[in-house]
Nucleic acid binder design. Sequence first.
DNA 1: TTCCATGCAAACAATTTGCAGCAGT
DNA 2: ACTGCTGCAAATTGTTTGCATGGAA
Lengths: 133, 133
Amino acid sequence: MKNTKQKEVILEAVYSMKTHPTADEIYTELKKDYERLSLGTVYRNLNQFAEQGKIRKVTMPAFGDRFDYRLEEHEHILCEKCGKVFDIHVDVAISSEFEDFTVTGHQLLLYGVCKDCKHSGKHMNTGDGSVIF
Amino acid sequence: MKNTKQKEVILEAVYSMKTHPTADEIYTELKKDYERLSLGTVYRNLNQFAEQGKIRKVTMPAFGDRFDYRLEEHEHILCEKCGKVFDIHVDVAISSEFEDFTVTGHQLLLYGVCKDCKHSGKHMNTGDGSVIF
DNA sequence: TTCCATGCAAACAATTTGCAGCAGT
DNA sequence: ACTGCTGCAAATTGTTTGCATGGAA
């Protein structure tokens, strides 16, 4: 794999934008400084980094794929109002064998309404009465 | 909401295909008997049913949206080789308040290799050493 | 008769890919 | 010099939408 300026700045962008950006958000951000950068290159490199385990790709229902520089085990919570994604640290212990499956990974996603959106006056659902995690 | 033949057979298809079908799979299946059925109608109705809580929409990374007739609380496990989705019943207890979030729902997705694919001789990853669920 | 739902095709959004030229080794 | 990487644009894929017509109430 060759070292290119593009690879460098794309990876750096994921590290510095701590907001779980989409490919397009990264592209838009970098475009300011790198006029000729192409969206295809951003996608190509993000996917490559994810395969190499340098970053993580997180698929969100209805809000597109996000990229996350945090490699440690953690889960995500998605605000359904603003689409922002936050990290949460919960202990999800999964055996590597489960009902005839060899389990290689998992993803836990919580949905809800974040603090800011709660206070911004929009109507919201009530909780569903579930228990402490 | 009006009762139409299309609504009837689409909903019935989700109930009878117990394979977590995509919209397109449902469409293809029904097209055999209903020549003039349109894919748009399938999408429209599936989304409507999901909103009404008659079925469930499950978003899978890399394999498109699936529809599930099972309404009870359960999670999914996705085979990375064949793309099949299976139900699993695990106890995921989540509080309705979590770090300033009002939690309205969650989704736990495990990835792995199913029994059939394990035995079909393809190379596979080793487990990641995690613990009993 | 009134409108909602459908079929159809076009529109869309997100992502991937083919290719010729350019740049890293 | 060789070959992979990039920019660009076109192609794909999955899904939604506008509109005229047909069918349920």
